[in-house]
């Protein structure tokens, strides 16, 4: 039963190969996208933190996105 499932009546290498390639590529793209996202979030948060106190306050008040990134980022560290 298991043997049959793995061999796919002789087409095993082709079937499993194409599924493996597809999911490997999907995983890789997910990883790369997530890494870039985290990198930009980190840099954005750092740049805000480097601003002077008044500027930082103004930025957070004016931009929901900035405050969201900053809060979610400080949570993750």
């Amino acid at each position: 039963m298991i043997q049959n499932f793995l061999s796919m009546s002789g087409y095993g290498l082709f079937v499993w190969g194409s599924f493996a390639i597809t999911f490997f590529a999907c995983g890789l793209l997910y990883y790369k996208t997530l890494k870039t996202l985290k990198k930009y979030e980190r840099e954005f948060a750092r740049e805000i933190n480097e601003l002077s106190f008044e500027r930082k306050k103004a930025v957070i008040e004016n931009s929901k996105i900035a405050s969201q990134v900053l809060s979610s980022f400080s949570k993750t560290i």
């Binding site: 996208t33 930009y40 805000i48 930025v59 931009s63 900035a66």
Partner: peptide
């Protein structure tokens, strides 16, 4: 990816916020 792009744009325009 879209989220990354939005952050990138915001980061670029940080001085104007």
């Amino acid at each position: 990816k879209y989220k990354t792009e939005i952050i990138r744009i915001k980061k670029k325009n940080l001085k104007r916020l």
